[in-house]
């Protein structure tokens, strides 16, 4: 084999390595997103955890894979879990993009940084979900936060503003918990998995590998 072939096969190997990671991790991200929902339902817990898989895939592989995992979780979730999930796939894409940008700057390196990321992520999610909630849901999502929306509407604010303000008060807490969860999960990965992902994604900038 001459050197030309070796160089070609090396870059071919790199592309095929990236492809393998994408093929391996995106289904896992989708399954984990939906699987956590199943787990929560199975343990009869009053929680709603919807983005941990998306956050993990984005940090491990990158933004395109994260978008794929998030959007597909919610599209397939429409078939497997609840048919209104597809309308929130846009929010998942926004989550993947924002998490990727923050992870690239190392904002999952420590707990305080992760908390900041979570708070900002919550704001992003609230703003992106608001139009969907207003047009399709008339302002409510059926969770307890409807009470806050009712209160704001009663005080005369417009629907959009009420929904955004409701989101801004609830989402940051939820998203911070999910980000911290992802932070903890990434740190507890076995060495061999951390090594496998060290080449791509943002894990090297955020976790000791």
């Amino acid at each position: 084999m001459n050197s030309n072939n070796t160089r070609e096969s090396e870059s071919g190997n790199a592309t095929s390595r990236k492809r393998i990671l994408f093929l391996a991790v995106v289904p896992v991200g989708i399954l984990v997103n939906l699987g956590i929902g199943t787990l929560v339902h199975f343990l009869k817990l009053p929680l709603f955890v919807d983005a941990v898989g998306t956050i993990l895939v984005t940090i491990l592989v990158g933004i395109p894979a994260g978008i794929a995992a998030g959007v597909l979780s919610f599209l397939l979730g429409g078939l497997l879990v609840n048919p209104v999930m597809p309308y929130f796939s846009g929010t998942q894409a926004a989550i993947a993009i924002f998490v990727g940008i923050m992870a690239r700057q190392g904002f999952f390196k420590s707990i305080p940084r992760t908390i900041l990321t979570g708070i900002l992520l919550g704001l992003v999610a609230a703003v992106v979900s608001a139009p969907v909630i207003v047009t399709l849901f008339g302002g409510i999502t059926g969770s307890g936060s409807g009470v806050i929306t009712a209160f704001l509407l009663a005080s005369g604010k417009s629907v959009l503003k009420s929904v955004i303000l409701t989101g801004v008060s609830c989402e940051p807490v939820d998203k911070t918990v999910q980000c911290l969860f992802a932070f903890w999960l990434l740190r507890s990965l076995p060495r061999n998995l951390k090594a496998r992902f060290a080449a791509g994604g943002y894990i090297r900038r955020n976790v000791d590998t």
Partner: peptide
């Protein structure tokens, strides 16, 4: 969730 994630990731790879 941790065990779920790690085992699923290994299997996926």
């Amino acid at each position: 969730v941790r065990t779920l994630f790690i085992s699923a990731l290994g299997q996926g790879l």
